[in-house]
């Protein structure tokens, strides 16, 4: 019974939501309710994840394990932001300043570091993998895309250069389309396996 109930829940809910794609007008109210419950559960799962993070840092602080100072920073930053966000509102000027003036400089700084890391890694890729078909096409495409992004190449439609530039801009879409189709086929297969109870990501292997 313990094993059958979760399978039944997953299969029935999955089939119901799938049926909602076809019978939208008929099932809409219940479907929206199920989706809201799903969003709620994802939110709570994220909170549970935060809880695990806090427990980890708290135990590191209490047990005086390696570098407890960093854990103290995580815990105090978390507490300050949580209390600030609950006491004030999300739109409050002070709270927005507190969050944005910490998050945005760090995020933008990390992105800035990425620029240098990307250049290094692209050269590293050629050094380790050598000149293969993929590495050459990758490098040529990256250089051409960067040149086109500069905006100095004339792209008037109707001219030969304009058509060539349009063609070069369309080329990456082909690969992306193939990759997207591959991901979608993979997602479709995984979804079907869960609904048919072949895979049970919620526990209990069949």
């Amino acid at each position: 019974m313990k094993r059958v109930v979760p399978v039944l829940i997953a299969v029935l809910i999955g089939l119901f939501v799938l049926a909602g794609y076809v019978l939208q007008s008929l099932l809409a109210p219940v479907l929206i309710m199920f989706l809201n419950w799903g969003v709620l559960l994802v939110g709570v799962a994220l909170l549970v994840g935060m809880g695990h993070l806090l427990v980890f840092h708290f135990s590191r602080l209490i047990n005086d394990q390696e570098k407890p100072f960093y854990s103290l920073i995580v815990l105090s930053a978390f507490t300050l932001t949580l209390v600030g966000g609950l006491v004030l509102s999300l739109q409050d000027v002070f709270f927005r300043n507190l969050v944005l003036n910490i998050l945005i400089p760090i995020e933008a700084g990390l992105l800035a570091i990425l620029a240098i890391t990307l250049v290094y890694m692209s050269l590293y890729l050629i050094r380790t993998r050598g000149w293969t078909v993929m590495s050459v096409s990758f490098l040529v495409s990256a250089i051409i895309s960067l040149l086109l992004n500069l905006g100095y190449v004339p792209t008037q439609p109707g001219t030969r250069i304009g058509e060539l530039v349009a063609f070069l801009r369309r080329l990456p879409i082909v690969g992306v389309r193939g990759i997207l189709l591959g991901i979608a086929l993979g997602g479709l297969l995984v979804g079907l396996r869960v609904i048919l109870a072949i895979d049970r990501p919620y526990g209990d292997e069949p």
């Binding site: 979760p6 997953a10 559960l41 997602g187 995984v190 979804g191």
Partner: peptide, 23 residues
């Protein structure tokens, strides 16, 4: 298991719908 089964069912159906109709 029970809430995760619920989430699994919803996510699987959304993945199928998204893959077929969205991509």
């Amino acid at each position: 298991r029970y809430p995760l089964a619920f989430l699994g069912g919803v996510a699987a159906a959304l993945a199928i719908g998204g893959a077929v109709f969205g991509t």
